[in-house]
Amino acid sequence: MTSITIDDHVLQSAFIRQPASRSLRVTCYGSSSSKTPEKYLKEARNLGYILAKRGHTCVNGAGSFGCMAAMNDGAVEGNGHIVGVIHKMWLVDQGDWASTPTGKTLRDGGAHSVFDKASNKEGPIREMLIADGPDLQERKRLLVEGAHALVVLPGGPGTWDELWEMACARKLGLHNSLPIVCVNVDHFYQPFVEMMQRAYEDRLLEQTPDEVIHFVETAEEAVRWLEEIQDSDDFASKAVLKKRPSTLRKSSFFGSDLASKFPFSLMPALSWISGSDSEEEGGTASVLLWQGILPLMVGLSVGVLVGTKSKLKR
């Protein structure tokens, strides 16, 4: 394989030449287009190389073009661990992935050449994961499964889709321990920075923008940040999932504001009747029970009142 050019400042960095104290699994998003500008490819190569030298695993979409290919080139140059994730619909007739007598798996022509051979126990990891399903959801899941951090390079709508899906999950607290950092090469992601700041100022975003997505200018800054943030004790607590109250309970009589106007509540009794130990289950059971009992009780009460009034008249 032809030697890949890595920036001199990266090669000379004392930080990059020594492995990190802890090996991380880092998912990387980026372009897969053969028309990706060189300035983006250069930073992608730097990212792959830095991850390799620091002892981290680079997980990506396994593409043979764009930032994905460049980061794999850099990781190979640094003799690092690489995991590619591809959907089976991009495999050509499945032929290139037939198992060989040695148990190895060969790549499809559209994947990066680093995946020509299966993982070797004596060398760095070279692993390919194949996703299934009618869409890309399984592939997206495999990309971030077990990841410690997410690094995003310049890319098109596919990259943006992956980025915003994970940003939304982080905002909701579903991936609150997964830091997200964008390498804002030549201010590529500046519109995203401004949009998030506007959303925060207009109270459409509760967390500060940096708590959801962190923006840096270089790959080295990205790796430094994600290593530091992984060692931070309070990082995972910054985004907390807020559970929305049950709309079913609120729509019921005893879950509405009307219930507070009565001097008693039969909810505990209904929970006991339903045999439920939890408040959530008891509340749901109570709603279902009262949907049948309340009309009956109202009807009986009206009947008693009418009957009593008739007797008094007599």
Rank of each mutant, 00 (worst) to 15 (best):
A20W: 03
V151P: 00
P179T: 12
Q230F: 14
S260P: 02
L266R: 15
G109R: 15
L300E: 13
M196S: 02
Q18Y: 08
S260H: 10
A111M: 13
F235I: 07
E279R: 12
G173L: 00
F192V: 08
F65Y: 13
G173K: 02
E279C: 01
T284Q: 15
T36S: 09
L136D: 05
R203A: 10
R17H: 09
D135H: 07
L129W: 14
I125P: 01
D202E: 15
G78K: 05
G84Q: 15
E211P: 00
C58E: 03
R22K: 14
A52P: 05
C182T: 08
N184I: 01
H87N: 10
M1V: 02
E43L: 06
G303R: 13
D234L: 10
K104G: 14
P101D: 06
P245W: 02
P19C: 11
V287W: 14
V114L: 08
A75H: 03
Q18S: 14
A169T: 06
T308Q: 15
C168H: 11
S265K: 11
N79Y: 11
M195I: 06
G283Y: 04
F253Y: 14
P134E: 12
A131H: 01
D234W: 13
V181Q: 04
Q207V: 02
R139Q: 07
R198E: 12
V223C: 02
L296V: 08
G84L: 08
G299Y: 13
C182E: 01
G103F: 09
L266T: 14
R244P: 05
M297W: 15
T27P: 00
G123A: 12
S119G: 09
N79K: 15
E220P: 05
G173E: 07
F262T: 13
A147T: 03
T284S: 13
R224S: 11
P101I: 04
K243D: 12
Q18H: 12
D233G: 07
